[in-house]
Amino acid sequence: MKARAEKLAQRILLVIALSAISSLILIALFIFKEGTPIMVKMGLRRFLFSSEWEPQAGLFGIYPMIVASLWVTLGAMLIGAPLGIAGAIFLNEFVPKTVLRIVKPAIELLAGIPSVVYGFIGVMVLAPLIRNHLGGPGLSILAAAVILGVMILPTVISISTDAIGAVPNSYREGALALGATRWQAVHMVILKAARSGIIASIILAMGRAIGETMAVIMVAGNTVKLPHSVLNSARTLTATIAFEMASATGRHREALFAIGVVLFVIIMLLNSFATVILRGRTTRA
């Protein structure tokens, strides 16, 4: 009796445990089912690399959006990655542990602030600054990159902090015993040992930046044109979906789902990459 109840509990738990992976498969299935027909009809190359996006005329080329997403993401990485990694190093190696315990929750708070609030700050504070000092419309790739750079900070800092914290203390002590200064120990020993975790944090942050929607839609300016400078207004892949979904029907909607497919593939590639890197670290340690 007891044993049978036990068996039943195990079966039910197994079914439950498959919920996450089945949700993932379900999501992939429906996004692909809605999105791939138009890609096949148009030809993948024309969909990805033509620059005409005119839904009314039946023209669906997402090249300008891909370029905009790339620029915004790269910009965000240029700002967020160095700042985040610097923060992680400083908090781990140069201040007492109590400071880390106080500052880490504050940085997690940064992750909790809704993306619409980031977008709003971008519109009210950053865009006017850029318009007045650098020119252009203000709502631009640069504005979006800066806002996203701040938004990915928590991801970079928390994963890098874990990676640096996981470096065995004996490495530090060894370097210091050889007469290295703390900074020499950091950049010659600790950063090398924590490299894979730091790279993973950057890749995951990149996924967040490409996928971010609401902040970008408010700040980037929404012009579907191939951008020529960071001061141009532009529209990313995610922003296009969010912007046009409400009014889209028929082939237009299919095209938006096709953008979803592109995003999904990019994100899955980045995630798998990060997982492989992180797993490599744990098996080696």
Partner: peptide
């Protein structure tokens, strides 16, 4: 496999969840 699925699900951007919810729950 379960862990990989969980990690991937965690990385999916919210707009994709929105698209999925719209086509699956709202429409179908």
């Amino acid at each position: 496999i379960i862990r990989f699925g969980t990690d991937c699900l965690a990385g999916i951007p919210s707009i994709i969840f929105g698209l999925f919810g719209f086509i699956f729950f709202v429409t179908i």
